[in-house]
Design a protein around this nucleic acid. Structure first.
Length: 655
DNA sequence: GAGCACTGC
């Protein structure tokens, strides 16, 4: 059984690797559990931890070009800071305060909360913009919430973001690609607009590196007007959250079998600790099933104390109803044990380049901290780590790798090009992607006919592809479908590739769905996710409108699937694979790269093994599996992408 | 015969 020791009393909660240089305005805020009866909105606002920093925040924003706010969940920073700014006059004279979020749902939720607190109608003084919805008014809106992707699109029309006085980038620690691009561009804008103020808000202690990013400048600004300028070095302010203390325990020695160790630890906790539920993190469904089996057996043979365990699995493959079981209240005298994947952590993706990687890998310190935080949401808790403290301190990486350093960059590069950033390799990123991944993206864009020999957007194809809010390869197949006369089918495929399924299979499903009168019963009968279908319809409608604006006429090829296949090939030629002759296992090799790949068993082409296929995505487990597969005629490849499949290829000029 | 989890324009 795993042995734990308690660390000393030192070490403030969850701040293990805090760096120096942080202005920590400590205070003795005690979380006042809600009183009885009615509490005015103003009282509620004043109870938020961030309220005590109002003056400090306003002073720092006034005097510094960039302010970094480190605040844990529940500090109230997202809802309050924009209001503080407005109250202090930052939205006077028709100016607007922007606050970005990485996710649509957060944008909507925060905007309606702030409108409620201010007692105004959503869409007037307080508004929001996300992809399908613009609930804001150019004349009235003073505080605007938006996804960082939408802010990027706005920069295409107004590169200096002239209507905004302050831009607050929230959840910057999540380091999504669009957050990183936004941060890089905002730094550029600041040089041209010294009056613009930035607030970078982050939940973890990434503040120091963020500060260095905004401080470092290739050439210092000119001295003229120095006294009017804000200080250039970013201010850092730390605001405590509302989480409770979580006591961390480590094992003394590395464990040999972590499933066994997890089970033993659950039983130990059940034996020794006062009432309270348990959340266990494991890597995947296999381990979870094994742990549940083992725990059930050991609990039964252990006797008296263990009968009170309610053991529940949690992973995405379960139905919604099964997942909801974990929210049911634990009966008195019982203890709930939830054994989960990282679904309960809300974060983390393991991806390398453009291949999704499902290999088990160690988590980062940031993930470990996030997991521990799950124990302290409502009251103090404990966290048992099944690795040693030495491992935590010396072996685990501080932060996961930012998305931009582990992703396919084609979308990102074309967005920068569309924003007029010509020197892509010289762009100042918070975290630079590797030159190799940039060059790979440039080569694909060149092959798609989106960039010319000087790595500039081509006209009209390059500009049209940039205009369509989809991956460039998908945008390209839409343009090709216009020439081939199958645009009606292709926009359906384009809409659905964000969901799942083989291209042609899905087209058939979509037709069936329409014939059923978009019936949810039909979906249920055919094991099809009705909500996914609704989402497909939504995206398809958006695409239809964009495509019409580009002058593409919707035309159906009826039953001639050759045209559809050819159009898809025009965008995904780089993902062409040939079946290896005499291979019994259905082994394919990519035509340009000879990488060994297999058709995913979820594909209808599994075991059919056509001679030549193209795929939409690769997933890497024990093998590289192709998902979303379509059979093609290899002669099309040289036809649609001669430069890519010719003997001697030439690369686009790199600037 | 596979099966961690997701978001955005």
């Amino acid at each position: 059984m795993a042995q734990f020791w308690k660390p000393g009393t030192e070490k403030p909660r969850l701040l293990e690797d805090e760096d120096g240089g942080v202005i920590f305005l400590s205070s003795s805020y005690s979380s006042s559990s809600s009183g009885y009866g009615y509490v005015s909105i103003e009282k509620q606002r004043q109870r938020l931890p961030v309220y005590k920093y109002r003056t400090a925040i306003l002073y720092l924003v006034e005097s510094h070009a960039t302010t970094i706010v480190v605040g844990e969940t529940g500090s109230g920073k997202t809802t309050q800071i924009p209001q503080f700014l407005k109250e202090a006059g930052w939205a006077d004279g028709g100016r607007v305060i922007a606050c970005t979020q990485p996710r649509r749902l957060a944008v909507q939720a925060v905007a309606s909360r702030v409108a409620e607190e201010m007692g105004v109608k959503l869409g007037e003084e307080v508004g929001y913009t996300i992809r399908f919805e613009d609930i804001s008014s150019p004349d009235l809106t003073r505080i605007k919430f938006l996804t960082d992707g939408v802010l990027l699109r706005e920069m295409m029309d107004d590169p200096l973001l002239t209507k905004y006085s302050v831009v607050m980038v929230d959840e910057a620690h999540e380091r999504s690609i669009s957050t990183d691009i936004v941060l890089g561009l905002l730094k550029k804008i600041q040089k041209r607009r010294p009056e613009l103020r930035l607030i970078i808000s982050s939940a973890t202690i990434e503040a120091k590196s963020m500060s260095n990013f905004f401080l470092s400048s290739k050439r210092r600004q000119a001295l003229e007007g120095e006294e009017l300028r804000p200080r250039l070095e970013p201010a850092i302010l730390s605001v405590e959250g509302r989480g409770f203390n979580v006591q961390i325990h480590y094992v003394e020695d590395p464990v040999r079998d972590y499933v066994q160790a997890a089970v033993s630890t659950v039983l130990l906790i059940n034996d020794k600790e006062p009432p309270g539920d348990i959340l266990v993190f494991l890597t995947g469904q296999d381990d979870i099933d094994a742990a549940i089996k083992l725990l059930t057996e050991e609990a039964r043979s252990n006797g008296k104390n263990s009968s009170g365990l309610i053991i529940l699995p949690l992973y995405s493959g379960l139905t919604r109803a099964e997942q909801d079981l974990i929210f049911s209240p634990t009966p008195k005298g019982k203890r709930k044990v939830v054994i989960s994947t990282n679904i309960a952590e809300t974060s983390l993706t393991l991806e390398i380049s453009d291949i999704e990687n499902l290999v088990v890998a160690p988590i980062s310190k940031a993930s470990a901290r996030q997991r521990a935080g799950r124990a302290g949401r409502l009251r103090p808790g404990k966290c048992y780590r099944l690795y040693t403290e030495e491992y935590f301190l010396n072996e685990m990486s501080i932060q996961g790798i930012p998305e931009i350093q582990r992703s396919n960059l084609v979308s990102c590069v074309i967005q920068l090009k569309a924003l007029g950033i010509d020197n892509i390799l010289g762009f100042d990123w918070p975290a630079s992607p590797s030159p190799e991944s940039m060059i790979r993206a440039l080569e694909v864009l060149y092959s798609l006919g989106v960039l010319d020999d000087d790595a500039k957007l081509t006209s009209p194809v390059g500009f049209q592809v940039a205009e369509i809010p989809l991956e460039p390869m998908i945008a390209k197949i839409i343009l090709s479908s216009n020439e081939l006369g199958c645009s009606d089918e292709i926009i359906t495929i384009a809409a659905v590739l964000s969901i799942q399924g083989d291209h042609v299979t899905f087209l058939n499903i979509y037709k069936g769905f329409l014939q059923s009168g978009k019936s949810s019963k039909w979906c249920h009968k055919n094991f099809i996710n009705y909500h996914a279908m609704k989402k497909v319809m939504e995206i398809r409608e958006l695409l239809r409108r964009i495509v019409l604006r580009l002058g593409i006429v919707l035309k159906s090829c009826e039953t001639d699937m050759q045209l559809v296949r050819k159009a898809v090939t025009a965008g995904f030629f780089a993902n062409a694979c040939r079946l290896e002759a005499y291979s019994h296992g259905g082994m394919y090799k990519t035509i340009r790269g000879s990488q060994e790949v297999y058709i995913h068993p979820s594909s209808v082409l599994f075991r059919v093994n056509p001679k030549c296929v193209i795929y939409h995505s690769l997933v890497s487990t024990d093998r590289q599996y192709m998902r979303n597969v379509m059979s093609i005629d290899p002669s099309w490849l040289t036809e649609v992408a001669p430069h890519f499949y010719q003997q001697q290829r030439h690369n686009p000029t790199i600037h």
